[in-house]
Amino acid sequence: MTTTYAALLRGINVSGHKKVPMAELRDLLGDLGHGDVRTYLQSGNAVFTSASDDEEALADQLGKAIADRFGFSVDCLVRSGAYLRAVADACPYPAESLEGKQLHVTYFSQPVEPERLASVDPADYAPEDFQLGDRVLYLYAPDGLGRSKLAEALARPALLKGVVATTRNWNTVAKLVELTGA
């Protein structure tokens, strides 16, 4: 039995740094024995099938293969299509009535306790807001991520020390759910 997964790579193809061509990423995933490999955008989203049920092992395998092939390390998260669907379904904001650039999901490598983010009071950033979910943070930023003061506050390294985090806008969240067939 195989499971469909999405690989979320952090910080590739940004301003010419850590270049990972999507065709090469597809080939790499295929070389690792995964099937039905597809990529979405240039920002590090790949969908594939695998007989493995260990997301962490799949992420480690992909990270090592990228380092071997491209000569630099990339943080990778791997999540099942069912998980991605559950994250989308649990969104506390009215995604259907917002523009994709207004709503973001930050995926975490592990659960993040609310206490870690207690120093960030959403009321100080209204109308922006955030909510924690299952290994995710939902961010409502009505003027987009690039102008979000709340996103800047949440990105302070001390808040998420030891946690891999990578963010996708809602359009990408929805597309990955679709591509995984969840």
Rank of each mutant, 00 (worst) to 15 (best):
M1Y: 13
T4I: 13
T4C: 14
Y5H: 14
L8T: 12
L8M: 09
L9A: 10
R10W: 10
R10S: 05
P21V: 11
E24F: 00
L25K: 12
D27K: 12
G30W: 05
L32N: 13
L32W: 01
L32V: 03
H34D: 10
G35N: 10
D36L: 14
R38H: 14
L41Y: 08
N45G: 15
A46I: 14
F48L: 01
T49E: 13
D53I: 09
E55V: 05
A59H: 06
Q61E: 15
L62C: 08
K64L: 15
I66L: 15
A67V: 03
S73T: 14
S73W: 09
D75R: 00
V78Y: 08
G81Y: 07
R85M: 05
A86H: 03
V87M: 10
V87E: 01
V87N: 02
D89W: 13
G100P: 06
K101T: 10
Q102W: 02
T106G: 04
T106Y: 07
T106S: 14
Y107S: 01
F108H: 15
P114T: 07
L117V: 10
A118C: 05
P122V: 02
P122R: 02
A123E: 15
Y125E: 07
A126D: 08
A126M: 06
P127H: 05
P127Q: 08
F130K: 00
Q131N: 05
Q131M: 08
G133W: 05
V136H: 00
V136I: 11
L137P: 06
L139E: 04
P142G: 01
L145C: 02
R147Q: 10
S148F: 03
K149F: 00
L150S: 00
A151Q: 04
E152G: 07
P157S: 15
V163N: 04
V163H: 03
R168H: 09
W170P: 03
W170T: 08
A174P: 05
A174K: 15
V177N: 07
E178Y: 05
L179T: 08
T180Q: 07
